[in-house]
Design a binder for these strands. Sequence first.
RNA 1: UUCCCCGUGGUGUAAUCGGUAGCACAACAGGUUUUGGUCCUGUUAGUUCUGGUUCGAGUCCAGCCGGGGAAACCA
Length: 558
Amino acid sequence: MSVEQHHFIHDEIARDLAHGANEGRVHTRFPPEPNGYLHIGHAKSICVNFGLAKHYNGKCNLRFDDTNPSKEEQEYVDSIQADVRWLGFEWDALYYASDFFEQLYQYGEHLIQHGNAYVCDLSVDQISEYRGWLDRPGKESPYRTRSVEENLDLFRRMRAGEFADGTKTLRAKIDMASPNPNLRDPVLYRIMRAHHHRTGDAWCIYPMYDFAHGQCDALEGITHSICTLEFEIHKPLYNWLIQNLPVPHHPRQIEMARLQLTYTVLSKRKLLELVKSGTVDGWDDPRMPTISGIRRRGYTPEALRAFCDHIGVARATSTIERVVLENAIRDDLNKRATRTMAVLDPIKVTIENIAAGHVEWLDAVNNPEDPSAGTRKIALTRTVYIERDDFREEAPKKYFRLAPGKEVRLRYAYCITCKEVKKDAEGRVVELVCTYDPQTGHGQTPDGRKVKGILHWVSAEQCVDVPVRLYDHLFAVEHPDDVPEGVDWKTNLNPQSLVVTSAKVEASLQAAAAGTHWQFERVGYFYVDPKDSRPQAPVFLRTTTLKDTWAKLEKRED
RNA sequence: UUCCCCGUGGUGUAAUCGGUAGCACAACAGGUUUUGGUCCUGUUAGUUCUGGUUCGAGUCCAGCCGGGGAAACCA
């Protein structure tokens, strides 16, 4: 599954290389703003940027786009670095846009001196009004004709803190009639007295994204500046600045479509809202599409990288089906997860022809995909538990699990036949009385009869109860963002996205270490929560279910 | 409404210079299997449409239709 795919950015880079651009270098960067936790969409960007660098024997930097101190925090800086490393990548250089604040300021003066920027006294509302509309040109600011000397003086005094927040901006002097609104004298600097997580109170003016991003790319020697489609309209400005500034290098911006996934939202604003409102249990809630949430859910970096390789890179907007992500982790865990048996919703089964107190130890395979994982002993006793869903009083067509008079195999043990069904006063099945055939060990039947149903089970005397959390999609619909006017997207939340329950498991699981992956046979993959587990007290989180052909068949019948 | 970008099976993504539309997931059918898991085999299904250029068009051109983006002192 993990095969690097060819995509259009390779073509672009190959063309540049063929023309001898950038001395044959390929240098990318991953430029997050530290204003939230990274999500799976960022994972795609990380894989593309670091992957390209690796493919061309180039470099990839990590750069924090920290130009807006009102939203950015150290907590996010730390989590982002941890996430990138967990994904399996190491940056060549670490930068912050704030490392370049002085240089950026000098570039601002350079633009002024060349008549390419001016200090504007218009208010936010006025700037917006003067900008015009999509189909209507803007009009020039009355401050557009200030002299170089006056602009320089004003810009220096802006830096010196002589003006109140929001009273002045530095704007590029480009074209108020441009069909691209980004070229209608965009704001380059604003006055904002906010404490910056790195530069403290050294600055009261901060560069805008457009003024910082391209110049940082240039200063870092980035050759290919990969971003998402919504920045495409910024490219003319990106290039204008590069051309009008004495930057050491000319990087090239290339846009790709951002990742969209069904059954989730991927906007930082909405994810932040889920966290702040307590809808989920923090950024690393296993239902969150954040890298930290996915990690805590029990996904592996290998699976996430395989997913990113698999989905491809293109310019067409598209939405990836959720199962693609799920298949990526199934594929990985199938090879590495140790098998065990666990019953989530038990029915007691009494095997009449096993004496009370008798224990037979049977061999069970730990991982059929990995012989080196070896075998373990499991205890068969007179009473065992099976899954409630593995018994029906009236078996539908093609149901080959247990039913009155029917025979099934207990995994790694013998075949049993259901002789009697005991119910409580409400008619709920409380116990099945069965007999086993001692001739049916080791997968054999002496007469060659076919016993198709195989059930997982645990010994009632040799099992332990452990807490289990069953996770499902956070949203009940494929496209949670698709809501009519005035309807809150949160109405699409899935009320069943978390079911807290317990399971009866093989006794050895009491010692399961935090951060280990298990397959509960016939049920799903589970991860021992690194956060809430304690020694001898593991908490099992369901990473994903196993594919369930029977459930699909049964659903189709309806 | 204006400008820009994008349209390949249900989904995602390939197709060198214009030369047999391929892969994966899903769906469906079957085989293997002490997990209705895994694995294996097969089937269904596609170039939005209309013209044009060409011996030949997914690819080039025009138009239409459809989708997305853009009007922060956010990134």
